[in-house]
Nucleic acid binder design. Structure first.
Lengths: 264, 264
DNA sequence: TGTAGAGTATCCCCTTAGAGGAGAGTCAAG
DNA sequence: CTTGACTCTCCTCTAAGGGGATACTCTACA
């Protein structure tokens, strides 16, 4: 019969841990003196202590060890733990890749985040424009047309509105563009305007602040980021207009979010 | 000026998180109504919110983000984080390897733990024995000799005593063996008995319960475990006698720990 | 037999990054 | 004016013990 301090040295577990394991019911002292509360252990319990210690070092939680102690199949728990650890490791690899990529970049001007965009009902319209400058005239005209077609239609709150460039490459003219705006209910369609439900999507997001002429850097950055960190691009980027000429005079205050749909 | 709920939707951060970030001083509302306590944000703050969100997704802690917000070198923090994550990943790989190895084993009778044995002062003696059965006579005789040479010498508390088999391979006779016992102070030496300080060592430990004739299984297990999980063996195994004929009659109650010094 | 020092007991607070909920106040629409 | 949606603050909870305060117990020594 040995006291807790000596047992802690033999088992290489702290006294705190031993008391905690007793409270959790996974390692009870052989005897507890009812008068003094002193705990007494036997050398044979070192076997059990080592088992618990080994499970802890393998990353099992106390609850998992409890389950094992209560007679469950160790193999099953360990298999589950193994699968969990593999997922953790993969996630960690992804983080390492991301940080590594960021450190390669000189300026660290952009900050990529992952977001989940839930399923969204939108009205949508496509056109071909001769110049980027025409976009900011075209978008309101689409909105007016939709409103004329569907008086009383309501946009989602907060607004979610974006354009997609449908050409495979950059071009100065003949730009194929699609506009989407989230609404609360579907409505009538015409040859321009259609309603559809965008599925839930994972996107990479970055914000661009400043005039539109600089936005190419942001596109380059996020495309490169996705490529180098193992994302599969799952659709055209969404350009979301947050602040612009309609509410900020100074172009250097304009704010645009680029969302790049990805899988994985 | 937008209220917290709407800002939370735009930034894809929960209201709880936004309030928490304010308390931590890393994302303050543009305005707080002194009467109602309502927080108001501006769209421009989405940029900062995205920065924080991206850092969180990279695994930075709030404290690290605080440091960055207070003007420290991002690059330095990220480099440190990267190094930390790489260490984490390596540790995780080791865990995965260990669990994988354990699952290969049918019985799961043994549980390996890592331990750090601190620097230890011991007296030590070597001999060659004709049979394993002679060990339990020889050890006490060494103890008596040391005590005769150094009356009043004290063993460490709790006791730490072990044998090392110095032959490269298993043999039935002519067994070269060394015995070590931890003591509190150094003393006189003779041709058999020497004092030395064992350096701090990391060991793999397993317990063997039962008679000594079965202990070979335990050796086989721990050697195999070390080999398959990337440990470098750093010396002969230490066989520590915990329970044996001196305090337990039934050989199936005998308890022996095997400690295998390893690096890394 | 008294005492000092070491060991042990219980109890409380602390750690992360928010989540969940209670109870009360605020805002906007009908 | 009411009602429902939003927001506020404050409290507790998480995993696995660590650190510390205070009180009790044990052992050795004078």
């Amino acid at each position: 019969m040995i006291k807790i301090g000596e047992f802690s040295k033999l088992a290489h577990l702290t006294v705190k841990a031993l008391r905690f394991y007793e409270k959790q019911g996974i390692l009870m002292p052989a005897v507890t003196d009812p008068l003094t509360g002193y705990r007494f252990y036997e050398t044979g319990q070192l076997l059990n202590a080592a088992k618990i210690k080994s499970f802890r070092q393998l990353g099992l939680t106390i609850d998992e060890i409890k389950v094992i102690c209560s007679g469950a199949d160790e193999r099953e728990i360990l298999s589950a733990k193994l699968a969990g650890l593999c997922r953790e490791r993969d996630r960690m690899d992804a983080l390492i890749s991301s940080i590594y990529h960021i450190l390669e970049d000189k300026e660290m001007k952009y900050h990529v985040t992952e977001k989940i965009i839930p399923e969204t009902l939108v009205y949508t319209a496509e056109t071909v424009l001769n110049s980027y400058k025409d976009i900011m005239q075209w978008i309101p005209s689409v909105g007016r047309e939709c409103l004329a077609l569907n008086p009383g239609i309501k946009c989602a709150e907060p607004p979610y509105e974006f354009c997609e460039y449908l050409d495979g490459e950059y071009r100065e003219t003949g730009i194929r563009i699609r506009h989407n705006e989230a609404v609360t209910a579907t409505g009538k369609e015409n040859e321009h305007i259609h309603f559809c439900t965008l599925p839930r999507t994972k996107v990479l997001s970055i914000f661009h602040r400043g005039p539109y002429e600089d936005i190419g850097q942001a596109y380059a950055y996020i495309m490169n980021y996705a490529r180098e960190n193992g994302y599969q691009i799952a659709g055209p980027a969404r350009e979301c207009y947050i602040d612009g000429i309609w509410n900020k005079e100074d172009p250097s205050d304009w704010l645009t979010e680029i969302q790049l749909p990805v899988t994985q």
